[in-house]
């Protein structure tokens, strides 16, 4: 196993583990406000200190990981679930009207960055984690659709697909049986990348108040709250950010490591 893969797996496991653990146990209750203990630096009692309401930052980060991972994961699921079939269909009907419609639709979604989608949704339904999921998820659709189509197109001219057509198999069946397994690695790698981008996007949306609403802890909100306190107690602003960086870094390393491992062509290049 490569160093990337090990480090990436460890970091991802660490945060996922912390998020899962937070369902059962956190060092302190994140709902309890203890004003007397506000803005304490890291100590034996509070390993990562406390915020301006006296809440334990470690506990907040653990519960925040839950929000981040949930939002990003569902958003990737939406992107893959809708994008991959669309991309495969476009590739199967390459050059036809269906391909044209799907690709132009993709271009159109690309014109709405996820923040803009979030703004539109929030303007109508008000802010919330669900809206963040939808906004990031919609933006993920064209990413996966383009990727799937681009990877599937050269496969359609390959002779093993021709052979399947000679055997009378239909386009959807060939897509499922021959195309999808051959682009799965690529989709997995892109999935980890979109997952990490989703975490960043969720943090950004929560930071500007379009994502998860209080009292649900989220990393972006913690940073927004810490902003005015940054001179007084820098750790309140630094630590949640560090959590984001490590989580995203872990996912990216995992993606790189998986790519090197799954794609023999790339492994040869590295050798």
């Amino acid at each position: 196993m490569s160093r990337n893969l090990i480090l990436g797996t460890l970091l991802t496991a660490l945060f996922t583990g912390a998020a899962l653990l937070s369902f059962l146990w956190t060092p302190y209750d994140t709902g309890a406000l203890v004003i007397a203990e506000r803005l304490q630096p890291p100590s034996a009692a509070h390993w990562l200190g406390t915020d301006h309401f006296g809440r334990d930052i470690l506990s907040m980060i653990m519960v925040g990981a839950r929000t981040s991972i949930a939002v990003a994961l569902v958003a990737v699921g939406i992107g893959m679930g809708a994008g991959v079939p669309l991309g495969l269909a476009a590739a199967a009907r390459r050059g036809g009207w269906l391909d044209e419609v799907i690709m132009r639709g993709n271009d159109l979604i690309f014109a709405f960055p996820s923040l803009v989608i979030a703004i539109l949704i929030t303007a109508i339904f008000g802010p919330g984690a669900t809206n963040a999921i939808i906004a990031i998820g919609i933006f993920n659709i064209p990413v996966f659709a383009r990727l799937a189509r681009g990877a599937a197109l050269p496969l359609w001219t390959r002779e093993f697909v021709m052979a399947a057509r000679v055997a009378g198999k239909s386009a959807p069946r060939i897509s499922a049986e021959h195309i999808l397994p051959n682009i799965a690695n690529l989709l997995i790698v892109q999935g980890t990348i979109q997952f990490s981008l989703g975490i960043l996007a969720e943090a950004g949306l929560s930071y500007v108040g379009l994502g998860a609403q209080p009292p649900v802890p989220s990393w972006g909100r913690m940073l927004a709250d810490a902003q005015t306190m940054v001179a007084l107690a820098p750790h309140v602003a630094i630590l949640p950010g560090l959590a984001i960086v490590l989580m995203v870094l872990g996912l990216n390393l995992l993606g790189d490591g998986l790519r090197d491992r799954l794609d023999p062509r790339l492994r040869v290049v590295r050798a």
Binding site: Y207, L223, Q227, G241, L249, L253
Partner: peptide, 18 residues
């Protein structure tokens, strides 16, 4: 660059301010 793509820009902005 690996680190660079992991950093949220608004948090980086806060660090710059600090």
């Amino acid at each position: 660059t690996q680190l660079g793509i992991a950093v949220p820009n608004f948090w980086f902005a806060m660090l710059l301010v600090l």
